[in-house]
Design a protein around this nucleic acid. Structure first.
Lengths: 126, 126
DNA sequence: CTTTTGTTATACCCATAATAACACAGATGG
DNA sequence: CCATCTGTGTTATTATGGGTATAACAAAAG
């Protein structure tokens, strides 16, 4: 998978990493049990500090996407709490959709966008 | 409208304010031309500093939701850039949906959630 | 004992949030 | 009609916390 940092983005580096890894998991590019690169490898590859990668991994662990092992590094290990996930999604969607509605986006367009994103995720899963 | 700050939340105060105001606009509780409370009024009411409210208003202006007037204060004034809005929504959705998918949420459930949120926005619009 | 892993200590910078003082517009009242 | 009081957003300054980095550490594997 191609993880990369947008140095012009306002998003913190560790958030960018976290998001890309989550997308990778959703697309099955990383599967349960797979190891992520070590913090130093990934840091070197994308051009940031080891500690920043470490922070991304810590957050992913805390959010239940990976497990940290001193020997094997970061291993994909989903801790599924669906109720929590639904709650979070709802909170985020409420704000995102409100923003879009104010700017003239219709419900139909949102549904199409959701459809498109799922299609994309499934396609790349193969 | 009931704007309030969650002092336990990790979200910055000014972001909480911004989000709630945007939701208010989407629900038609605030309409084009309406004035928001003055920075001091709102600050007193919710228990934070005037400057923090001011920052929320500045961001809302910069994002094209309101216009600032030294006399009238903050006035709802939508500057609609739909292309930009669609782009932003897509970026946010990609991450939010990936998170949800990892935790076992299905596409169908997402569509239902979107439907529910729009229903809610339209209902309260009256 | 060298290499590779994650961890801890420390420091720097920028964003968040607050206090305080400012500048301008409008209302009030003498 | 002018003085002043009140309400508006603005600017300056500061304190605290989070994001990022450098450097040194600890533990496991070969």
């Amino acid at each position: 998978m191609f993880i990369e940092i947008d140095f012009n983005s306002e998003e913190a580096f560790y958030i960018q990493l976290r998001n890309q890894i989550i997308i990778g998991i959703a697309m099955n590019q990383y599967q349960e049990g797979d190891s992520l690169p070590s913090v130093r490898q990934l840091a070197d590859r994308v051009g940031i500090n080891m500690h920043t990668v470490n922070k991304a991994y810590s957050v992913l662990k805390q959010e239940g996407f990976i497990r940290l092992d001193r020997r094997k590094g970061a291993v994909i290990a989903l801790d599924v709490d669906k109720l929590q996930a639904v709650k979070e999604l709802q909170t985020n969607l409420r704000v995102d959709l409100a923003r879009a509605v104010c700017k003239g986006v219709s419900e139909e367009e949102v549904h199409q966008m959701v459809r498109g994103i799922f299609e994309d995720m499934e396609k790349r899963g193969q």
